[in-house]
Design a protein around this nucleic acid. Sequence first.
DNA 1: CACCATGTTCCTTG
DNA 2: CCAAGGAACATGGT
Length: 263
Amino acid sequence: MRGVQVCRPKIVRPDSPRAFAAKLTGARFVGVSRRGKHLLFELRMLNSPKPLFLMGHLGMTGRMYLLPPQSPLPKHAAVVMDLGPRRFVFEDTRYFGRLTFDRRVLARLGPEPLSVRFTPESFWSSLKHSRQAIKVKLLDQRLVAGIGNIYASEALFRAGISPLKRCCGLSQSQAARLWRAIRHVLRQAISCGSTVPLNFAGAEASADRLFYFGTQPGMIDYYEERLRVYDRAGHPCPRCRAPIRRLAQAARSTFYCPRCQRR
DNA sequence: CACCATGTTCCTTG
DNA sequence: CCAAGGAACATGGT
């Protein structure tokens, strides 16, 4: 890495742009992984065996990709790394995302939903004493990592459970049903997203960028087709034709079928 | 102009 | 301790 431009200082907190750039200069990307909604980049300095970890979060509008030489920077570039011929760009219109060496949030995350650590039993144990509405609880990253507002509604629809139901009011078999639904919905979403994989297939989908993380033009439609209730208020339920309803919970929109998901 | 938006964190109130 | 709600972050779409 030859140089780093931090266009939005808050993105790299608590480091200052200068400190952030200093840590990265001379480092090379050697690996990448994911935990919940966080991306983990492994870096190494040329002469040191000890790895350095950089954590990214896309927020709602973030994207990361490689920009070919000479291409202009996007309007909302937040961080730009000069990798030699190409540049690694973190673009984020709303600047809600993060790119930071501070990994403390990882310690507070619940299990990966597709891992063996996440079982119907562990899920039920975390739910049975909570009086919170299940939809709100699903957004709590300490329960299980990676469920966002869209998938919370989708999973509850698939499980036939009302978003308003209190966690402690769920039976063990309902919790198991929801556990299955979460895994199904996330796996399906990943299979849609994998049309833009971590290899170089993304190069053909977009003329001037190699997309790695975040949605790219053309992918949204494909993905939205799979949503059964999210953002579909007034549309007929795909299962029973009753109109889908929208409600607000903890200042977030929830979509559900009042007939298939009774309290 | 008003209202809404894929996320997280912090703060206040009950 | 828990839960609910609001604001903040900043910009764009309808």
